[in-house]
Design a protein around this nucleic acid. Structure first.
Lengths: 155, 155
DNA sequence: CCCATTTCCATGCGTTTGCATGTAGACAAG
DNA sequence: CTTGTCTACATGCAAACGCATGGAAATGGG
């Protein structure tokens, strides 16, 4: 039971740190040409040169599928991304950065990286950062294949 | 510069872990009698027996001031909290749990604690949890007096 | 005391989100 | 080929959110 309490304390500390950091970053993003959420999509796509399907984006971004669908729709209207069908699976929608989207991601990304170096890098030593990363990775890895074990029990 | 890269990697790992965990928790909260955001307010208030002002709540909860204002308004309409003025500062609005709110916080909190023990406690050893907590605390502490994060603790 | 500034919360309004549902293609069995 | 089920997105709609702003009270000189 002491273990459970330790887990709760760790989660609460983690959530509070995340809240404080997010607040700071969101402030940085005010006055930026894209919102933090849009940047999140741009960044994710920048790591997928061949594009990504909506369902893959959705795994990385904390939005429901319909919300992400519309967010990408707006981003296409703004010329940040391009949507096209996948010949091998005609249900899929493949999203790809436009040149404009890639350029904005790079530009905003530079300032965001500086903010991370400041707010995160400025708070912990390099060794602590590495430890934090390792623990976060382990924590995330443990969440996989655990998503929806909610069996529908309705006669 | 290598330090900056380490900070970026740590932040990305942290954000991804948070996303995965939040997804799981939000799923747990489907079918619950309150949403996760409402629970967040209930939990924060459960730690402030003498009530909390909106601005203090806002320091802990990732919402803009107007959004939190309306969330609390809805929660009052649902009988979860009670709002009253502060005689020592007539601009302030003090929010307090109702008996119903406290009861629901306890009930939902028990299940949520079990989920934390499962998802977080199940992923790391007790020593790792303690390390994670220490790093998260340090990270959060470093954000104060920077963006606009002031932590006020109930006396 | 007075006026300017700041703090704390509420409200109008357009935008975004989530839930429920719809549509179309993939996939498997008969 | 047909039928049923599953998967991937899209869409209607009400609820919730953020931004800009407003009003009232506290605060800080002059």
């Amino acid at each position: 039971m002491a273990r459970n309490r330790t887990a709760e304390e760790a989660w609460e500390a983690l959530a509070r740190a995340q809240t404080a950091l997010m607040r700071g970053f969101q402030e940085d993003f005010r006055g930026e040409e894209v919102s933090m959420r849009v940047y999140d999509v741009l960044y994710t796509l920048s790591r997928c040169p061949s594009g990504a399907r909506l369902r893959d984006l959705n795994a990385h971004i904390l939005l429901t599928q319909p919300s992400l669908s519309r967010l990408v729709e707006r981003m296409e209207a703004d010329g940040l991304v391009h949507r096209c069908g996948d010949p091998t699976d005609r249900r899929a929608t493949v999203v790809r950065l436009t040149e404009r989207g890639r350029e904005i991601q790079r530009r905003v990304g530079r300032r965001h990286a500086a903010a991370i170096a400041d707010r995160v890098g400025g708070a912990l030593s390099e060794e602590e950062l590495a430890t934090l990363r390792a623990l976060a990775d382990k924590l995330r890895a443990a969440q996989e294949g655990r998503g929806s074990v909610s069996m529908t029990v309705d006669p």
